[in-house]
Design a protein around this nucleic acid. Sequence first.
DNA 1: ATAGGGTTAG
Length: 558
Amino acid sequence: MDSSHRYNEATNLEVSGDSEDSATTMSSAGPEEEEDDAESCVNGGDDDCGCRDERWISWSTWCEESAIEYETAEVDGRDAPREAYASSSTPINSFAFFKSYTHPPNNGNSFTFQSLLKSCSKSRSIAHSTQLHCLISKLGFICCTSVQKALLKCYVVCGRLHVARFLFDEMLERDIVSYNIMISGYFELGDTLSAIELFECAPNPNRVSWTAMVTGFCNNGDSLMARRYFDEMPDKDLVSWNAMISGYVRNQQPLQALHLFVLMQMERFRPNRVSIVSVLLACASSGALDAGKWIHVYVNKNKFRLDAFLGSALIDMYTKCGAVEFGLDVFTSLKAKNTCVWNTMINGLALNGHARRALDVFDQMQLGASIRPDEITFVGILMACSHGGFLEEGRRHFYCTSKKWKEVEKIRKIMKNMGIEKIPGSSSIEINNMIHEFISGNKSHPRYTDICAELEELRKKMNTEGYHAEITEVLYDIDEEEKEHALGHHSEKLAIGFGLISTAPGTTLRIFKNLRVCTDCHSATKLISKICKREIIVRDRVRFHHFKDGVCSCNDFW
DNA sequence: ATAGGGTTAG
Protein backbone atom coordinates (compact mmCIF):
# COMPACT_ATOMS: atom_id res chain seq x y z
CA MET A 1 0.00 0.00 0.00
CA ASP A 2 1.53 3.31 -0.96
CA SER A 3 1.70 6.17 1.44
CA SER A 4 -0.70 8.45 -0.42
CA HIS A 5 -3.37 5.85 -0.15
CA ARG A 6 -2.83 5.56 3.56
CA TYR A 7 -3.06 9.29 3.76
CA ASN A 8 -6.47 9.31 2.13
CA GLU A 9 -7.71 6.50 4.23
CA ALA A 10 -6.77 8.39 7.35
CA THR A 11 -8.40 11.55 6.08
CA ASN A 12 -11.62 9.80 5.37
CA LEU A 13 -11.62 8.40 8.84
CA GLU A 14 -11.57 11.88 10.25
CA VAL A 15 -13.76 13.74 7.83
CA SER A 16 -16.60 11.31 8.09
CA GLY A 17 -16.38 11.82 11.81
CA ASP A 18 -18.75 9.17 12.92
CA SER A 19 -16.93 6.24 11.47
CA GLU A 20 -15.41 5.14 14.75
CA ASP A 21 -18.81 4.93 16.29
CA SER A 22 -20.01 2.56 13.64
CA ALA A 23 -19.31 -0.42 15.85
CA THR A 24 -22.41 0.36 17.86
CA THR A 25 -24.56 0.94 14.82
CA MET A 26 -25.06 -2.50 13.46
CA SER A 27 -25.92 -3.11 9.88
CA SER A 28 -29.53 -3.96 9.36
CA ALA A 29 -28.64 -6.79 7.04
CA GLY A 30 -28.48 -10.18 8.53
CA PRO A 31 -31.02 -11.09 11.16
CA GLU A 32 -33.80 -12.07 8.85
CA GLU A 33 -31.58 -13.61 6.24
CA GLU A 34 -31.15 -17.29 6.65
CA GLU A 35 -27.51 -18.20 6.99
CA ASP A 36 -26.19 -21.33 5.30
CA ASP A 37 -23.75 -22.00 8.07
CA ALA A 38 -26.39 -22.01 10.71
CA GLU A 39 -28.91 -23.99 8.78
CA SER A 40 -26.45 -26.74 8.00
CA CYS A 41 -25.32 -27.16 11.57
CA VAL A 42 -28.69 -27.26 13.25
CA ASN A 43 -29.60 -30.77 14.23
CA GLY A 44 -32.77 -32.03 12.70
CA GLY A 45 -34.91 -29.16 11.50
CA ASP A 46 -37.72 -31.36 10.32
CA ASP A 47 -41.24 -30.57 11.39
CA ASP A 48 -42.31 -34.18 11.25
CA CYS A 49 -39.93 -35.36 13.92
CA GLY A 50 -40.95 -32.52 16.21
CA CYS A 51 -37.49 -31.06 16.45
CA ARG A 52 -38.58 -27.48 16.12
CA ASP A 53 -41.10 -27.82 18.89
CA GLU A 54 -38.58 -29.49 21.05
CA ARG A 55 -36.20 -26.65 20.43
CA TRP A 56 -38.78 -24.12 21.37
CA ILE A 57 -39.59 -26.01 24.52
CA SER A 58 -35.95 -26.18 25.53
CA TRP A 59 -35.63 -22.46 24.90
CA SER A 60 -38.57 -21.51 27.06
CA THR A 61 -37.59 -23.98 29.76
CA TRP A 62 -34.16 -22.52 29.75
CA CYS A 63 -35.58 -19.03 30.04
CA GLU A 64 -37.48 -19.98 33.14
CA GLU A 65 -34.78 -22.12 34.66
CA SER A 66 -32.05 -19.59 34.17
CA ALA A 67 -33.79 -17.35 36.72
CA ILE A 68 -33.21 -14.27 34.67
CA GLU A 69 -35.25 -11.33 35.76
CA TYR A 70 -36.67 -10.00 32.57
CA GLU A 71 -36.81 -6.32 32.08
CA THR A 72 -39.29 -4.76 29.73
CA ALA A 73 -37.73 -4.34 26.37
CA GLU A 74 -38.21 -0.81 25.18
CA VAL A 75 -37.33 -0.41 21.57
CA ASP A 76 -38.25 2.23 19.06
CA GLY A 77 -40.02 0.30 16.39
CA ARG A 78 -40.54 -3.39 16.93
CA ASP A 79 -38.81 -4.13 13.66
CA ALA A 80 -35.42 -2.91 14.83
CA PRO A 81 -32.82 -5.54 14.03
CA ARG A 82 -32.09 -7.81 16.94
CA GLU A 83 -28.38 -7.27 16.45
CA ALA A 84 -28.71 -3.57 16.99
CA TYR A 85 -30.63 -4.19 20.14
CA ALA A 86 -28.24 -6.77 21.48
CA SER A 87 -25.16 -4.72 20.82
CA SER A 88 -26.48 -1.66 22.58
CA SER A 89 -28.14 -3.33 25.51
CA THR A 90 -27.54 -5.49 28.52
CA PRO A 91 -27.83 -9.24 28.03
CA ILE A 92 -30.95 -9.28 30.16
CA ASN A 93 -32.66 -6.84 27.85
CA SER A 94 -31.42 -8.71 24.84
CA PHE A 95 -32.75 -12.02 26.11
CA ALA A 96 -36.07 -10.49 26.93
CA PHE A 97 -36.25 -8.96 23.53
CA PHE A 98 -35.25 -12.22 21.90
CA LYS A 99 -37.95 -14.01 23.79
CA SER A 100 -40.63 -11.50 22.90
CA TYR A 101 -39.57 -11.63 19.31
CA THR A 102 -39.25 -15.33 18.95
CA HIS A 103 -42.26 -17.50 18.20
CA PRO A 104 -42.13 -21.06 17.07
CA PRO A 105 -40.98 -22.09 14.58
CA ASN A 106 -38.60 -19.12 14.44
CA ASN A 107 -35.82 -19.78 16.94
CA GLY A 108 -33.34 -17.40 15.45
CA ASN A 109 -30.25 -18.17 13.46
CA SER A 110 -26.54 -17.96 14.04
CA PHE A 111 -26.64 -14.17 13.77
CA THR A 112 -29.09 -14.05 16.63
CA PHE A 113 -26.70 -15.95 18.87
CA GLN A 114 -23.73 -13.95 17.72
CA SER A 115 -25.50 -10.78 18.81
CA LEU A 116 -26.63 -12.22 22.09
CA LEU A 117 -23.07 -13.36 22.76
CA LYS A 118 -21.84 -9.93 21.82
CA SER A 119 -24.03 -8.35 24.45
CA CYS A 120 -22.71 -10.89 26.97
CA SER A 121 -19.10 -10.03 26.24
CA LYS A 122 -19.94 -6.35 26.36
CA SER A 123 -21.28 -6.71 29.87
CA ARG A 124 -18.69 -9.32 30.85
CA SER A 125 -21.39 -11.51 32.23
CA ILE A 126 -20.10 -15.01 32.81
CA ALA A 127 -23.49 -16.25 34.01
CA HIS A 128 -25.24 -15.25 30.82
CA SER A 129 -22.36 -16.51 28.71
CA THR A 130 -22.51 -20.01 30.14
CA GLN A 131 -26.27 -20.13 29.91
CA LEU A 132 -26.15 -19.08 26.30
CA HIS A 133 -23.39 -21.62 25.73
CA CYS A 134 -25.73 -24.37 26.91
CA LEU A 135 -28.55 -23.19 24.71
CA ILE A 136 -26.25 -22.89 21.70
CA SER A 137 -25.03 -26.44 22.25
CA LYS A 138 -28.57 -27.71 22.58
CA LEU A 139 -29.69 -26.03 19.40
CA GLY A 140 -26.64 -27.18 17.51
CA PHE A 141 -25.30 -23.76 16.66
CA ILE A 142 -22.07 -24.59 18.45
CA CYS A 143 -20.64 -26.02 15.21
CA CYS A 144 -20.91 -22.62 13.56
CA THR A 145 -17.47 -21.04 13.56
CA SER A 146 -18.70 -17.48 13.89
CA VAL A 147 -20.72 -18.46 16.94
CA GLN A 148 -17.66 -20.24 18.33
CA LYS A 149 -15.58 -17.10 17.96
CA ALA A 150 -18.22 -14.97 19.66
CA LEU A 151 -18.31 -17.48 22.51
CA LEU A 152 -14.52 -17.48 22.69
CA LYS A 153 -14.62 -13.73 23.11
CA CYS A 154 -17.17 -14.04 25.94
CA TYR A 155 -14.97 -16.38 27.93
CA VAL A 156 -11.90 -14.27 27.24
CA VAL A 157 -13.43 -11.00 28.47
CA CYS A 158 -14.78 -12.81 31.53
CA GLY A 159 -11.25 -13.93 32.31
CA ARG A 160 -12.03 -17.63 31.82
CA LEU A 161 -8.99 -18.28 29.70
CA HIS A 162 -8.84 -22.00 30.43
CA VAL A 163 -12.39 -22.44 29.11
CA ALA A 164 -11.60 -20.28 26.11
CA ARG A 165 -8.46 -22.29 25.44
CA PHE A 166 -10.42 -25.51 25.64
CA LEU A 167 -12.90 -24.23 23.04
CA PHE A 168 -10.05 -22.88 20.96
CA ASP A 169 -8.26 -26.22 20.92
CA GLU A 170 -11.50 -27.97 20.02
CA MET A 171 -12.22 -25.69 17.08
CA LEU A 172 -11.94 -27.35 13.71
CA GLU A 173 -11.25 -24.11 11.86
CA ARG A 174 -9.06 -21.67 13.74
CA ASP A 175 -8.73 -18.51 11.72
CA ILE A 176 -6.60 -15.49 12.50
CA VAL A 177 -9.48 -13.86 14.36
CA SER A 178 -9.68 -16.62 16.94
CA TYR A 179 -5.91 -16.44 17.42
CA ASN A 180 -6.14 -12.70 17.98
CA ILE A 181 -8.93 -13.06 20.51
CA MET A 182 -6.82 -15.54 22.48
CA ILE A 183 -3.70 -13.36 22.28
CA SER A 184 -5.41 -10.34 23.81
CA GLY A 185 -6.99 -12.63 26.39
CA TYR A 186 -3.61 -13.87 27.57
CA PHE A 187 -2.28 -10.33 27.80
CA GLU A 188 -5.31 -9.30 29.81
CA LEU A 189 -4.37 -11.91 32.39
CA GLY A 190 -0.73 -10.86 32.30
CA ASP A 191 0.28 -14.17 30.72
CA THR A 192 2.64 -12.67 28.17
CA LEU A 193 4.46 -15.94 27.59
CA SER A 194 1.33 -17.71 26.36
CA ALA A 195 0.52 -14.69 24.21
CA ILE A 196 3.95 -14.81 22.60
CA GLU A 197 3.67 -18.54 22.15
CA LEU A 198 0.36 -18.18 20.34
CA PHE A 199 1.60 -15.28 18.25
CA GLU A 200 4.61 -17.27 17.14
CA CYS A 201 2.56 -20.25 16.09
CA ALA A 202 -0.10 -18.04 14.52
CA PRO A 203 -0.30 -19.07 10.87
CA ASN A 204 -0.07 -15.58 9.41
CA PRO A 205 -0.05 -12.79 11.95
CA ASN A 206 -1.83 -9.78 10.47
CA ARG A 207 -1.84 -6.14 11.52
CA VAL A 208 -4.38 -6.83 14.22
CA SER A 209 -2.18 -9.55 15.72
CA TRP A 210 0.86 -7.28 15.69
CA THR A 211 -1.07 -4.42 17.24
CA ALA A 212 -2.47 -6.77 19.86
CA MET A 213 1.14 -7.59 20.80
CA VAL A 214 2.05 -3.91 21.04
CA THR A 215 -1.00 -3.10 23.16
CA GLY A 216 -0.57 -6.22 25.26
CA PHE A 217 3.00 -5.44 26.21
CA CYS A 218 2.14 -1.81 26.94
CA ASN A 219 -0.70 -2.85 29.20
CA ASN A 220 1.72 -5.09 31.03
CA GLY A 221 4.14 -2.24 31.59
CA ASP A 222 6.70 -3.36 29.04
CA SER A 223 6.85 -0.54 26.52
CA LEU A 224 10.33 -1.61 25.52
CA MET A 225 9.14 -4.98 24.26
CA ALA A 226 6.08 -3.32 22.73
CA ARG A 227 8.34 -1.01 20.79
CA ARG A 228 10.37 -3.97 19.61
CA TYR A 229 7.25 -5.55 18.10
CA PHE A 230 6.14 -2.19 16.76
CA ASP A 231 9.44 -1.66 14.98
CA GLU A 232 9.37 -5.15 13.56
CA MET A 233 5.79 -4.84 12.36
CA PRO A 234 5.87 -5.03 8.57
CA ASP A 235 2.79 -3.08 7.54
CA LYS A 236 1.76 -0.52 10.13
CA ASP A 237 -1.50 1.34 9.94
CA LEU A 238 -2.95 4.22 11.92
CA VAL A 239 -4.26 1.94 14.65
CA SER A 240 -0.84 0.43 15.26
CA TRP A 241 0.72 3.88 15.56
CA ASN A 242 -2.01 4.95 17.95
CA ALA A 243 -1.51 1.79 20.00
CA MET A 244 2.18 2.52 20.50
CA ILE A 245 1.63 6.22 21.21
CA SER A 246 -1.11 5.63 23.78
CA GLY A 247 0.97 2.78 25.20
CA TYR A 248 3.78 5.21 25.95
CA VAL A 249 1.28 7.56 27.59
CA ARG A 250 -0.08 4.78 29.80
CA ASN A 251 3.46 3.87 30.80
CA GLN A 252 4.20 7.44 31.77
CA GLN A 253 6.61 8.08 28.95
CA PRO A 254 4.99 11.18 27.48
CA LEU A 255 8.12 12.37 25.73
CA GLN A 256 8.41 9.10 23.82
CA ALA A 257 4.73 9.45 22.92
CA LEU A 258 5.27 12.96 21.56
CA HIS A 259 8.34 11.82 19.68
CA LEU A 260 6.48 8.95 18.07
CA PHE A 261 3.64 11.30 17.16
CA VAL A 262 6.08 13.42 15.19
CA LEU A 263 7.61 10.32 13.63
CA MET A 264 4.19 9.10 12.61
CA GLN A 265 3.56 12.24 10.61
CA MET A 266 6.97 12.01 9.02
CA GLU A 267 5.89 8.57 7.83
CA ARG A 268 2.93 10.37 6.22
CA PHE A 269 0.26 9.04 8.54
CA ARG A 270 -2.40 11.59 9.31
CA PRO A 271 -3.44 11.71 12.97
CA ASN A 272 -7.10 11.00 13.69
CA ARG A 273 -9.00 11.86 16.85
CA VAL A 274 -7.61 8.84 18.69
CA SER A 275 -4.05 9.97 17.99
CA ILE A 276 -5.00 13.47 19.05
CA VAL A 277 -6.54 12.40 22.35
CA SER A 278 -3.50 10.25 23.15
CA VAL A 279 -1.03 12.95 22.35
CA LEU A 280 -3.03 15.49 24.38
CA LEU A 281 -2.66 13.15 27.34
CA ALA A 282 1.06 13.13 26.73
CA CYS A 283 1.09 16.93 26.71
CA ALA A 284 -0.93 17.00 29.92
CA SER A 285 1.40 14.70 31.79
CA SER A 286 4.60 16.37 30.62
CA GLY A 287 3.30 19.92 30.77
CA ALA A 288 4.00 20.53 27.11
CA LEU A 289 1.72 23.54 26.78
CA ASP A 290 3.08 24.75 23.44
CA ALA A 291 2.74 21.31 21.93
CA GLY A 292 -0.77 21.11 23.35
CA LYS A 293 -1.71 24.47 21.84
CA TRP A 294 -0.35 23.28 18.50
CA ILE A 295 -2.61 20.24 18.70
CA HIS A 296 -5.58 22.46 19.49
CA VAL A 297 -4.87 24.54 16.38
CA TYR A 298 -4.55 21.33 14.39
CA VAL A 299 -7.94 20.18 15.70
CA ASN A 300 -9.61 23.43 14.62
CA LYS A 301 -7.84 23.58 11.28
CA ASN A 302 -8.88 20.07 10.37
CA LYS A 303 -12.40 20.61 11.62
CA PHE A 304 -12.32 17.71 14.05
CA ARG A 305 -15.66 17.29 15.71
CA LEU A 306 -15.29 18.65 19.25
CA ASP A 307 -17.09 15.89 21.14
CA ALA A 308 -16.92 15.05 24.84
CA PHE A 309 -13.88 12.84 24.31
CA LEU A 310 -11.79 15.40 22.53
CA GLY A 311 -13.17 18.18 24.70
CA SER A 312 -12.20 16.53 27.98
CA ALA A 313 -8.76 15.75 26.63
CA LEU A 314 -8.26 19.41 25.70
CA ILE A 315 -9.56 20.72 29.03
CA ASP A 316 -7.38 18.19 30.81
CA MET A 317 -4.33 19.25 28.83
CA TYR A 318 -4.85 22.98 29.43
CA THR A 319 -5.57 22.72 33.14
CA LYS A 320 -2.72 20.30 33.75
CA CYS A 321 -0.46 22.74 31.96
CA GLY A 322 -1.64 25.52 34.26
CA ALA A 323 -3.62 27.33 31.54
CA VAL A 324 -6.95 27.30 33.38
CA GLU A 325 -8.57 30.05 31.28
CA PHE A 326 -7.91 28.20 28.03
CA GLY A 327 -9.44 25.13 29.62
CA LEU A 328 -12.53 27.13 30.56
CA ASP A 329 -12.81 28.43 26.99
CA VAL A 330 -12.94 24.90 25.65
CA PHE A 331 -15.37 23.94 28.38
CA THR A 332 -17.84 26.73 27.55
CA SER A 333 -17.61 26.09 23.84
CA LEU A 334 -18.47 22.40 24.30
CA LYS A 335 -22.05 21.67 23.35
CA ALA A 336 -22.42 18.16 24.71
CA LYS A 337 -21.07 18.02 28.24
CA ASN A 338 -21.17 14.62 29.86
CA THR A 339 -20.06 13.71 33.38
CA CYS A 340 -16.50 13.26 32.26
CA VAL A 341 -16.33 16.79 30.82
CA TRP A 342 -17.68 18.30 34.04
CA ASN A 343 -15.31 16.21 36.13
CA THR A 344 -12.34 17.23 34.04
CA MET A 345 -13.20 20.90 34.50
CA ILE A 346 -13.80 20.56 38.25
CA ASN A 347 -10.58 18.64 38.76
CA GLY A 348 -8.69 21.06 36.58
CA LEU A 349 -9.84 24.01 38.67
CA ALA A 350 -9.11 22.16 41.90
CA LEU A 351 -5.67 21.25 40.67
CA ASN A 352 -4.90 24.91 40.10
CA GLY A 353 -6.12 25.96 43.52
CA HIS A 354 -9.35 27.58 42.30
CA ALA A 355 -11.45 25.99 45.01
CA ARG A 356 -14.30 28.49 44.82
CA ARG A 357 -14.64 28.19 41.05
CA ALA A 358 -14.51 24.41 41.22
CA LEU A 359 -17.42 24.46 43.67
CA ASP A 360 -19.31 26.86 41.42
CA VAL A 361 -18.92 24.54 38.45
CA PHE A 362 -20.08 21.70 40.68
CA ASP A 363 -23.28 23.62 41.49
CA GLN A 364 -23.79 24.44 37.85
CA MET A 365 -23.40 20.78 36.97
CA GLN A 366 -26.18 19.69 39.28
CA LEU A 367 -28.56 22.62 39.15
CA GLY A 368 -28.04 24.05 35.70
CA ALA A 369 -27.24 20.97 33.70
CA SER A 370 -28.82 18.25 35.86
CA ILE A 371 -25.85 15.94 35.43
CA ARG A 372 -25.42 13.43 38.20
CA PRO A 373 -22.03 13.62 39.89
CA ASP A 374 -20.14 10.36 40.36
CA GLU A 375 -17.31 9.33 42.66
CA ILE A 376 -14.74 11.05 40.49
CA THR A 377 -16.63 14.32 40.90
CA PHE A 378 -16.44 13.97 44.66
CA VAL A 379 -12.75 13.25 44.61
CA GLY A 380 -12.36 16.49 42.68
CA ILE A 381 -14.50 18.40 45.15
CA LEU A 382 -12.53 17.02 48.07
CA MET A 383 -9.35 17.98 46.30
CA ALA A 384 -10.66 21.51 45.81
CA CYS A 385 -11.53 21.81 49.50
CA SER A 386 -8.24 20.45 50.71
CA HIS A 387 -6.29 22.75 48.43
CA GLY A 388 -8.43 25.61 49.56
CA GLY A 389 -7.20 25.03 53.06
CA PHE A 390 -10.63 23.97 54.33
CA LEU A 391 -9.30 20.87 55.95
CA GLU A 392 -6.71 22.07 58.37
CA GLU A 393 -7.34 19.31 60.88
CA GLY A 394 -6.61 16.77 58.19
CA ARG A 395 -3.34 18.40 57.55
CA ARG A 396 -2.36 18.37 61.22
CA HIS A 397 -3.26 14.73 61.36
CA PHE A 398 -1.14 14.12 58.30
CA TYR A 399 1.92 15.61 59.94
CA CYS A 400 1.80 13.17 62.75
CA THR A 401 3.40 10.41 56.46
CA SER A 402 6.81 11.74 59.16
CA LYS A 403 9.72 10.41 61.32
CA LYS A 404 9.07 6.72 61.25
CA TRP A 405 12.36 5.69 59.71
CA LYS A 406 11.99 2.05 60.65
CA GLU A 407 8.62 1.78 58.90
CA VAL A 408 9.95 3.46 55.82
CA GLU A 409 12.92 1.13 55.79
CA LYS A 410 10.62 -1.87 56.01
CA ILE A 411 8.42 -0.72 53.17
CA ARG A 412 11.42 0.01 51.01
CA LYS A 413 12.75 -3.49 51.60
CA ILE A 414 9.43 -5.07 50.70
CA MET A 415 9.23 -2.95 47.57
CA LYS A 416 12.73 -3.91 46.57
CA ASN A 417 12.01 -7.59 47.13
CA MET A 418 8.97 -7.31 44.95
CA GLY A 419 11.08 -5.82 42.25
CA ILE A 420 9.41 -2.45 42.53
CA GLU A 421 11.86 0.38 42.50
CA LYS A 422 11.10 3.74 44.03
CA ILE A 423 9.89 6.02 41.25
CA PRO A 424 12.68 8.48 40.56
CA GLY A 425 11.73 12.10 40.80
CA SER A 426 11.56 13.66 37.38
CA SER A 427 10.95 17.28 36.44
CA SER A 428 10.65 18.81 33.04
CA ILE A 429 10.76 22.33 31.71
CA GLU A 430 9.83 23.57 28.27
CA ILE A 431 12.30 26.04 26.81
CA ASN A 432 12.16 27.22 23.20
CA ASN A 433 9.82 24.40 22.24
CA MET A 434 12.21 21.84 23.67
CA ILE A 435 11.32 19.80 26.70
CA HIS A 436 14.23 19.17 29.05
CA GLU A 437 13.81 16.37 31.51
CA PHE A 438 15.77 16.10 34.75
CA ILE A 439 15.93 13.00 36.91
CA SER A 440 17.06 13.50 40.50
CA GLY A 441 20.73 12.74 40.89
CA ASN A 442 21.22 12.31 37.14
CA LYS A 443 24.14 14.30 35.77
CA SER A 444 23.70 13.69 32.07
CA HIS A 445 22.36 17.09 31.05
CA PRO A 446 24.99 18.92 28.93
CA ARG A 447 24.81 21.96 31.18
CA TYR A 448 24.87 20.03 34.43
CA THR A 449 27.95 21.82 35.85
CA ASP A 450 26.52 25.26 35.04
CA ILE A 451 23.27 24.28 36.72
CA CYS A 452 25.10 23.14 39.86
CA ALA A 453 27.12 26.35 39.95
CA GLU A 454 23.90 28.37 39.70
CA LEU A 455 22.27 26.32 42.47
CA GLU A 456 25.32 26.70 44.69
CA GLU A 457 25.28 30.45 44.13
CA LEU A 458 21.60 30.54 45.00
CA ARG A 459 22.15 28.53 48.12
CA LYS A 460 24.61 31.06 49.43
CA LYS A 461 22.11 33.86 48.83
CA MET A 462 19.35 31.79 50.38
CA ASN A 463 21.41 31.09 53.50
CA THR A 464 21.82 34.80 54.08
CA GLU A 465 18.02 35.02 53.94
CA GLY A 466 17.93 32.50 56.74
CA TYR A 467 17.27 29.38 54.71
CA HIS A 468 18.28 25.97 56.01
CA ALA A 469 17.50 22.80 54.18
CA GLU A 470 14.48 21.07 55.67
CA ILE A 471 15.80 17.61 55.95
CA THR A 472 12.97 15.74 57.59
CA GLU A 473 11.36 15.12 54.22
CA VAL A 474 14.02 12.90 52.73
CA LEU A 475 12.41 10.05 54.64
CA TYR A 476 15.51 7.97 54.77
CA ASP A 477 17.92 7.41 57.57
CA ILE A 478 21.09 8.71 56.00
CA ASP A 479 23.35 11.20 57.72
CA GLU A 480 22.49 14.85 57.65
CA GLU A 481 25.12 15.89 55.13
CA GLU A 482 24.02 13.26 52.66
CA LYS A 483 20.43 14.34 53.11
CA GLU A 484 21.33 17.87 52.27
CA HIS A 485 23.13 16.71 49.19
CA ALA A 486 20.19 14.61 48.04
CA LEU A 487 17.88 17.58 48.54
CA GLY A 488 20.17 19.83 46.56
CA HIS A 489 19.76 17.56 43.58
CA HIS A 490 16.03 17.03 43.58
CA SER A 491 14.91 17.10 40.00
CA GLU A 492 12.83 20.26 40.33
CA LYS A 493 15.86 22.17 41.63
CA LEU A 494 17.84 21.06 38.61
CA ALA A 495 15.03 22.15 36.31
CA ILE A 496 14.72 25.51 38.04
CA GLY A 497 18.49 26.02 37.88
CA PHE A 498 18.47 25.26 34.19
CA GLY A 499 15.50 27.54 33.61
CA LEU A 500 17.26 30.40 35.37
CA ILE A 501 20.44 30.18 33.31
CA SER A 502 18.77 29.64 29.95
CA THR A 503 16.00 32.24 29.87
CA ALA A 504 15.96 36.02 29.92
CA PRO A 505 15.57 37.69 33.33
CA GLY A 506 11.96 37.96 34.39
CA THR A 507 10.74 35.05 32.26
CA THR A 508 8.19 32.85 34.03
CA LEU A 509 9.45 29.31 34.61
CA ARG A 510 7.03 26.40 34.24
CA ILE A 511 8.17 23.17 35.82
CA PHE A 512 6.41 19.82 35.82
CA LYS A 513 7.19 17.20 38.39
CA ASN A 514 5.99 13.60 38.45
CA LEU A 515 6.02 13.35 42.26
CA ARG A 516 5.00 15.79 44.95
CA VAL A 517 7.17 18.76 45.73
CA CYS A 518 8.94 18.26 49.06
CA THR A 519 8.84 20.83 51.87
CA ASP A 520 12.43 21.80 51.27
CA CYS A 521 12.03 22.39 47.56
CA HIS A 522 8.85 24.29 48.35
CA SER A 523 10.49 26.77 50.70
CA ALA A 524 13.58 26.98 48.52
CA THR A 525 11.46 27.83 45.47
CA LYS A 526 9.62 30.50 47.41
CA LEU A 527 12.94 32.15 48.21
CA ILE A 528 14.27 31.72 44.68
CA SER A 529 11.19 33.49 43.30
CA LYS A 530 12.00 36.40 45.60
CA ILE A 531 15.76 36.50 45.07
CA CYS A 532 15.61 36.12 41.28
CA LYS A 533 12.41 38.14 40.84
CA ARG A 534 10.87 35.35 38.81
CA GLU A 535 7.45 33.81 38.71
CA ILE A 536 7.87 30.07 39.03
CA ILE A 537 5.00 27.71 38.39
CA VAL A 538 5.50 24.15 39.54
CA ARG A 539 2.94 21.49 38.85
CA ASP A 540 3.53 18.42 40.95
CA ARG A 541 1.66 15.13 40.99
CA VAL A 542 -1.17 16.63 42.99
CA ARG A 543 -1.51 20.31 42.25
CA PHE A 544 -0.04 23.59 41.07
CA HIS A 545 2.21 25.92 42.99
CA HIS A 546 2.46 29.48 41.69
CA PHE A 547 5.51 31.04 43.36
CA LYS A 548 5.89 34.81 43.34
CA ASP A 549 7.76 37.26 45.60
CA GLY A 550 8.58 34.59 48.12
CA VAL A 551 4.97 33.41 48.47
CA CYS A 552 3.22 30.37 47.05
CA SER A 553 -0.39 30.31 45.83
CA CYS A 554 -1.04 27.17 47.85
CA ASN A 555 -0.49 29.12 51.08
CA ASP A 556 1.55 26.15 52.18
CA PHE A 557 -1.45 23.82 51.99
CA TRP A 558 -0.79 20.82 49.84
C1' DA B 1 -18.91 -9.01 10.42
C1' DT B 2 -15.81 -11.34 14.04
C1' DA B 3 -9.87 -9.26 16.07
C1' DG B 4 -5.99 -4.16 17.34
C1' DG B 5 -5.96 2.33 19.17
C1' DG B 6 -8.83 7.30 22.78
C1' DT B 7 -11.45 11.12 28.20
C1' DT B 8 -11.96 12.58 34.28
C1' DA B 9 -9.36 10.72 40.38
C1' DG B 10 -6.70 8.04 44.00
